[in-house]
Structure formats: structure tokens, C-alpha cells
Computed example of a mutant assay.
Amino acid sequence: MEELLGRVATGLITDENQDYYYVQKNGVTFQLAKAEGAHQLGESVEGFFYVNQQQHNAFTTVIPKIVVGRYGFGEVKSVRRDLGVFVDIGLPDKEVVVSLDSLSEIKELWPKPGDRLYITLRVDHKNRIWGELATENIILSLFKRLPQDGTWQNKEVTGTVYRLKLAGTFVLTDDFYQAFIHPSERYREPRLGERVTGRVIGVSSHGYLNLSLKPRSYEVIDNDALMLLTFLERAQDHKIPFTDKSDPEAIKDQFGISKGQFKRAIGHLLKAKKIKQEEGYTILLEK
């Protein structure tokens, strides 16, 4: 049976009951839900062979996107620290497990529900179907050649983390370009399978994008600026009767900071285009 599981092949419908047809292949019988469509006894039908969550031999004509020898992205649905992560490949009654042996020893870097992994299937000698992470060579075969048109700098790109290494984080972008995040360009290490959006800070001579997950320096908002944003969000009409020209004592009484601190915070918010100043008011632009 091992040679059938996780694969697409044609079987013969040999029996039925109220809920299932029974499909036979190589002397092994699998159940096919009648809810998938009508068939006749003696009919040959193509589908996917597997063992479902209830440990029944199952067959479906709805071919999953990932089979043995075919790779694709599957969404992580749940995590078991003693086993691995469960991934949806498109089956109605089964998720496949990517074993903890394939994942980082640092469990904080394991995928979480909603992340996605690029995997294929493998079947072990006990007829268990596992998800298997794509090898480096498989991933490399996906990448498109990076256009050398000089338009990448500061562009935002989104992609999926596919490899974690001491040197940094490797990303497959949504447009199938390779990208890399050096540890100095992130505040924390992204998880395997996590979706990230980064800013292009350079193009490597090896043909991949260098990304930063950190904001530009002028986008960094300090505690004083965050405090002012909170005031603005709670103020009537999202505006306050203070500007960088307001009286220092009034600023101190209202916000508990010096005029110098206030002006720096206002400057950060103006550069970040979160506020404007007019007619003696500071006004929130983003609500």
C-alpha cells in the first residue's frame, strides 16, 4: 500500500453503500465519499490515495495541491510541541505533519497557525504520510532572475520565510525572487513560514534582494511621539491646541515634557506624515 499513499492514480469502483463507494487498487480497498459525486460500479476513477484522520483507507477525486513528488505551499493549522506542525494540503479530513525533526530546536522559531510551508509528501514504512520541507535545491529552482533595472531600492516586498540560518533569514518573495535579511536588519528573528514585509536596502552581487525589517530612521517614533499620538487619538476632532510654537510652561503642564522634547516628537510625527499643524492646532492625519 505504501506505493499508493500520497499519490494520484486510477482505481476501480467495486462496491458501495449509502455513504461511500469502495475503490480498489493493487488489492487494497479505499473509501470514496458519495458526496463528491455519482459513479457506477465497475467505473475507473482517478484520485488521491491516503489514510484519513480516522485511520481509514481513503480516496478522493479532489486532488490536493501537494502530493508525493509535487511541492506547494500548505497552511499551518496547529502545533504540537511533541510531534511537529499540522499542515493543510487541501484534504477534507486530514492534515499532514511536518515532523519536529525538520524544525528548529528553538521552538519559538517554529511556524504558527496561519504561517505557510513549502512542502511535498513522503510515506514511511508504517504507511504514515508526512509533510517534508522543500530542499535548498528545490527552493532555488523556483527563483526568477532578478531584473537589474535599478528600481529596487526602498521598494517594499512581501514573502515567506523558507530557511533559518545563523547568517540570517532567507525569504521567497511573492514574485518568486530570493531575498535575505541580515540579523542586524531585524528586531527579532522571523519564524519559519512567517509572512514578512521588508524594505529593499540593496541587491546582492549573487542576485538576491537584501531586506530590512526595520523602519527608516525618520519613521522611528519615540515614546514622546507615541504619547502625543495617544492624546490626538483621544482628543475631540483628533486635534490639540498645541504646536511647536506653544508656550513651554503650557506644554509642561499638559504633557509633562519639555518644549525641546515636544518639538522633537512633533518633528518625528510631521516627517512620518501622521500629523499636520495649522491655525495653532496639531491635527491627526491618520485615524
Rank of each mutant, 00 (worst) to 15 (best):
S99T: 06
S78W: 04
T120S: 15
Y118E: 04
I119P: 11
T29A: 07
I181K: 12
E36F: 03
F48M: 08
H206W: 00
E3H: 14
G202L: 05
I63E: 08
Y20Q: 06
K34S: 11
H182G: 01
V79K: 13
G114A: 08
I138D: 11
E189D: 08
N52V: 06
E75I: 07
H182I: 00
E36K: 00
V51D: 03
I240M: 06
Y71Q: 09
H39T: 05
S141L: 08
G168R: 11
W130G: 04
D244R: 09
E16P: 02
A265K: 03
F255V: 01
V67T: 14
R145Y: 12
G159I: 03
D101F: 10
I266S: 03
S212T: 14
M1Q: 14
L133T: 01
S258H: 01
G207H: 10
G114T: 00
R264M: 12
L103P: 07
E249F: 13
Q178R: 08
D19F: 15
K263E: 11
R216N: 09
G202H: 07
D19C: 10
E75D: 04
T169R: 00
G159D: 02
G42T: 06
Q55H: 11
G256Q: 13
F48T: 09
R216I: 06
S184Y: 08
G74T: 05
R70V: 09
D244N: 14
T169C: 06
E278H: 08
E95N: 09
A35R: 15
R7Y: 05
K94W: 01
K252R: 09
P92S: 06
F262S: 01
Q236D: 14
P215G: 13
A134F: 02
V203Q: 14
A250V: 02
E105T: 04
Q148E: 15
F231W: 15
G6V: 03
D124Y: 15
H268N: 07
D15L: 05
I66C: 14
D82N: 13
H182K: 13
R191T: 08
V28H: 11
G84L: 00
V79A: 05
Y177R: 02
E46M: 02
H268S: 12
A235V: 03
